[in-house]
Write a protein that binds this DNA or RNA. Structure first.
Lengths: 213, 213
DNA sequence: GTGTAGAGAATGAACGTTCATTCTCACCTG
DNA sequence: CAGGTGAGAATGAACGTTCATTCTCTACAC
């Protein structure tokens, strides 16, 4: 079979890419994108600096590849959430998983990516797409939840609710990155309480008292 | 008069330091701490690179000086807030001023400082002190507000409320830094609504429904 | 089985560049 | 002239990237 490539080869090439990304993730968390050197990444990955360039064309490409991989993993976890049997429980699970159970290093990497996004257009695009994806999923989830309610109350604006939830999630990320022993639990509970009350029509954070009177 | 220093001299030296810090702020916002060079800062400040070292011992010292200056300015604005006649109005003013009216560059710088704090102990200390200061002020404010209420309802935990408000504020900072045209207004209003309702005893985001039943 | 050829993978020293920092000297001001 | 202020060239270390070379297999020939 002349034109067949060894599957073992292809497989290991993909493995090598993920090994490099894993190594880069560790180095970037430790030293940041700009202070981590290609030598650091190579050492962490157990290979020579030159060899990195067989798998990624540049350091920036590694940064982008890493960002893309991690964000895609999170986005994947949000997909199809509107189809869950118990919507609020699904939302609670997502929040806990990504804001409490995920290792604190993810929060550090997230901060790093945000800082990079403020001046690197490629990173900005990744963050923007991610944010749109999650905002869409969340507002869809909230709309579903309102529609499924016993008596369909007017309730809060789903888009605004999603924005509020994401702002709180971002804030929790920041706090976690800055002080690894920050107790996320109570704040996550507060977030769930606010969103839950808004979906039940008990409390609407979406309309400001001042502008109603 | 041996122990007298020329006021003009001191004045201009101090002015020069602030000019350097202003220049550094502009450069850091544009390129980040690590990609901004001392040449950039010098050019922005209208002086030579070598001359910077007459006023700051190192680049890191400029970074730290800048962080210290900006955070101190914000902290100053929060001081004595418990003494305001209308507490909720004072809080509203602070939130609007720092989260909506402040230039978006401040948010970018803030993100930069947070990312740096995850691995630079000096920056971490600055951020930690700042956070403690604000947390103390805010919880004091909330405690005051609860005490001054018509009928002193049991109400939410002031410390937890302060943490919640700060998390939301951090999240707003992130969103502003990432997309300069982000509409902060509605989210700030939502934050004020939540905090206001909690202080009035109408709604308590501090106790999680699940744990009550 | 042994030997040989070839391809792809990996190495690590070297290169050119960049950048924080230092050095040298000119220029004021009193 | 003395003392301080500043400019700008010089320095040396560090870094991303390259490349000539070596290593490691696999495949085939005999």
């Amino acid at each position: 079979m002349p034109p067949s490539q060894s599957p073992a080869r292809l497989d290991s090439a993909e493995e090598r890419r993920t090994r490099i990304l894993d190594a880069a993730e560790a180095c970037f968390v430790r030293h940041g994108f700009h202070r981590a050197t290609m030598h650091d990444v190579a050492a962490e990955a157990g290979m020579s600096p030159g060899n990195l360039y067989r798998y990624f064309p540049s350091k920036d490409a590694i940064v982008a590849g890493l960002a893309e991989r991690d964000r895609a993993a999170v986005a994947e976890d949000f997909s199809g959430i509107e189809a869950a049997p118990d919507l609020m429980q699904a939302f609670t699970g997502l929040a806990r998983r990504h804001l409490a159970e995920a290792p604190a290093e993810k929060a550090v990497l997230c901060l790093e990516m945000w800082a990079e996004a403020t001046r690197n257009p490629a990173m900005a695009a990744i963050c923007r797409d991610f944010e749109r994806e999650i905002a869409g999923r969340l507002s869809g989830l909230y709309r579903q939840a309102q529609a499924r309610a016993p008596q369909p109350a007017p309730g809060a604006d789903p888009e605004a609710l999603a924005r509020l939830a994401m702002v709180m999630a971002d804030g929790i990320m920041v706090r976690r990155a800055l002080s690894p022993d920050f107790a996320t639990g109570p704040v996550i509970d507060a977030m769930l309480t606010v969103i839950g009350a808004a979906l039940d029509g008990r409390f609407d954070p979406t309309t400001f008292p001042e502008s109603d009177r």
